[in-house]
Simulated assay, not measured.
Amino acid sequence: MKKGMLTLLAAVVAGGTLLGFAESTNAAKAVKAVKADSKKKQVISSTSVEVLLHTRKMKFPDARPYKDENDRVLVPLRFVSEALGAKVNWDPKTDTATITKNELKVEMTVGKLSGLVNGQEKTFDTPMVKKQQRTYVPLRVVSEAFGEKVEWDNVSQWVWIGKKEFKTLEELGYKPQSIEPFKKYFKKEKFLLNRENDQGQVIGQFKKVMIIEPETLPFQFREHTVIMDMGLMGADKDKKSGQRISMRTNSRGDIGVNIFHLMDDGVPRFRNSISVEKHADKVTSTYRYKIRSSSDELLNIQNPHYWDLGDVKYIGFYDYSKEYMILMKNSWRES
């Protein structure tokens, strides 16, 4: 039953694309919304990057990693060293850092392209630097010296350190809670609350929900599907009709994970992916979704075109086979 309704919704959304809402094949690169804390001084760079340690994004409290003019990623010295389980000894007279972990040791001096790695002199392709009262060290030098694999992800401008073994929400410590307080968002389209078996038969309703944050990503969504990141693409914030939500996963299929928007009016807006970009890494793809759709008019929504992503409270990841529903808090919500 539900599959038939979803097929109809998908067809209507696709029809909207044919009626003039087509996605541009030259969509701009993903733009990530950043809420800056004006009380903190951060290194702002057009080439800022994310660093993931064993698939979890590292949080840098007051200084961001960045890519320098030599195309190398530099990170705050003390923070990343301690995250790798190492200790830092700083000599202010010589601007030299000695980083140790068990029997391993790295010695580097600000501005110099050579240093000692486990007792052997090494030449680096970019030096350790001081910037905005912080000391930055080449990430690859430190990580590999301590036995961690380093991989550059050109698609998302990420650096992967260590094992790429993605965790489920349960493994990340999330626990399901009652869905009752969230049923107010499903006054219409209640079929989204139904669970089904592999044959498409309704076997009950969701009783639990898992609430996650955007920072939860990446995580193992299904057995063979990892939701890696989400962002905005297309027009800038003032041209909301041209915006798209993007979702990067490890899938290579033509259709992405279905999502839905939950708002205070109690009418879920179901969205299937409208286009896909399969990346050159031959592993991941980015799927694009409409924010508003012509299909919303069929749901008898009052003023269907006068809302935007900032009105959405939760973004749901649709999977009728799970024992709980997954809802992500909307990081683009207007306060």
Results as ranks from 00 to 15, higher is better:
V209R: 13
F186N: 03
E82Q: 14
L298A: 13
G316D: 02
D95M: 09
G200Y: 01
V88R: 03
Q205K: 08
V267R: 13
L6A: 15
F270E: 08
I44R: 09
K29M: 14
N258S: 08
P127G: 06
K322I: 08
V88G: 06
R269D: 00
D311S: 12
D198L: 15
I245T: 04
K208N: 11
L8Y: 10
G15T: 12
V75W: 03
N330W: 01
T225W: 04
R222N: 14
T17C: 07
Y306M: 12
E196W: 01
E50Q: 06
L298D: 06
T249R: 03
I274P: 00
E323H: 07
T100D: 04
G231I: 02
L299Y: 05
G256A: 09
M128V: 06
E334G: 01
A97R: 01
T109A: 10
N118T: 13
Y174T: 02
E277V: 07
R72P: 13
K190D: 07
W152L: 14
V209M: 11
G4A: 07
K87E: 06
V80Y: 13
N272S: 08
F317K: 14
E148G: 00
E148C: 00
Q157C: 08
I301P: 01
S241K: 09
K240Q: 07
D91L: 06
S81G: 03
V159H: 05
K163F: 04
Q42L: 15
D229Q: 15
F206W: 10
E196Q: 09
K130G: 07
H305T: 03
V209T: 13
H305I: 02
S293W: 05
R333V: 01
G85E: 11
K239M: 09
Q120W: 11
V312R: 11
D95E: 11
T109Q: 14
A145D: 13
F146Y: 07
L309R: 08
S294D: 08
R288G: 11
P176D: 07
E170Y: 12
P138V: 02
L6S: 13
M328D: 02
T123C: 03
G16Y: 04
W160T: 10
R271L: 05
V31A: 14
T284A: 12
E144N: 14
L262T: 07
G253E: 15
V73I: 14
G234I: 05
A22Q: 12
L217W: 02
E223Q: 15
P304W: 09
D238G: 02
W152D: 13
H279L: 14
I211M: 14
E297K: 14
K290V: 03
A22V: 05
K131W: 03
D265Y: 03
A145V: 13
V142M: 04
R56W: 06
H279V: 08
E223A: 15
V267M: 15
E151F: 02
T216Q: 10
R56T: 10
K167W: 00
K87M: 02
R333T: 00
I203F: 04
E180S: 12
D68H: 09
S331M: 10
L192H: 08
E148L: 06
D254K: 05
E189T: 07
L77V: 02
M247T: 07
M325A: 08
K40H: 08
D265K: 02
S46H: 07
K237I: 13
F270I: 12
P176Y: 07
M58E: 02
V43N: 10
T135S: 09
V142G: 02
R134W: 09
E107A: 02
G173I: 01
R78A: 01
L299V: 02
K29E: 08
T17G: 11
